[in-house]
């Protein structure tokens, strides 16, 4: 694909990512906030897709949008509080100043070509991935035990 086309498309996707992240911040309903968060993740996966990083796209889409996003939306729908926002103006001001400085002085000419999608990691480090999976199952079992003990 043309590099200029990719750069323009990334700018559009990046703007949409930022817009949905702001939507998650500004909406008062937890449910819509979780929906905006899932959309942000989808746009992040879209940016990965533009760089032809398919394994990463599959991981982010399946794990983040498919599992984490759906669970968060379910929890947000359960505790659907329409609480009033309490954004600290002092913090918002600091973040606005830092963001503006970054946008003004960030080197816009940084460009790079993604060489490989890194899929060989999975075959080379299968044991490490299995270890991570085992750790994940252990964490899962521990949380189930804690919740059961609290429920008694």
């Amino acid at each position: 694909m043309d590099l200029n086309f990719i750069t323009n498309f990334i700018t559009i996707l990046g703007t949409l990512t930022l817009a949905t992240a702001l939507g998650a911040l500004l909406t008062r309903d937890n449910f819509y906030s979780a929906l905006y968060m899932s959309l942000t993740m989808l746009f992040v996966a879209g940016i990965y897709a533009l760089y032809n990083l398919q394994p990463s796209v599959v991981l982010i889409t399946l794990v983040f949008v498919g599992a984490v996003g759906v669970i968060t939306i379910a929890i947000a729908a359960t505790y659907r509080a329409q609480s009033s926002r309490k954004i600290s103006l002092a913090w918002a001001l600091v973040i606005a100043i830092v963001s503006a400085t970054l946008i003004l002085h960030f080197p816009s000419a940084v460009s790079f070509n993604v060489l490989s999608n890194g899929i060989s990691f999975l075959s080379n480090y299968l044991l490490a991935v299995l270890f991570l999976l085992a750790t994940m199952v252990l964490v899962m079992l521990s949380t189930i035990k804690i919740i059961k003990e609290v429920g008694r």
Binding site: T17, L18, A21, L22, A24, L25, N30, S33, A34, M37, T40, T72, I75, A76, Y79, A81, S83, S84, R85, K86, I87, S88, W91, A92, I95, V98, S99, L102
Partner: peptide, 21 residues
């Protein structure tokens, strides 16, 4: 910028669900 938005969200969260998001 997304991390800043998330920081602001965590700082202004009134419930733990918003903190998770």
């Amino acid at each position: 910028l997304i991390t800043f938005v998330a920081f602001l969200m965590a700082l202004s969260a009134k419930d733990t669900v918003r903190l998770l998001i």
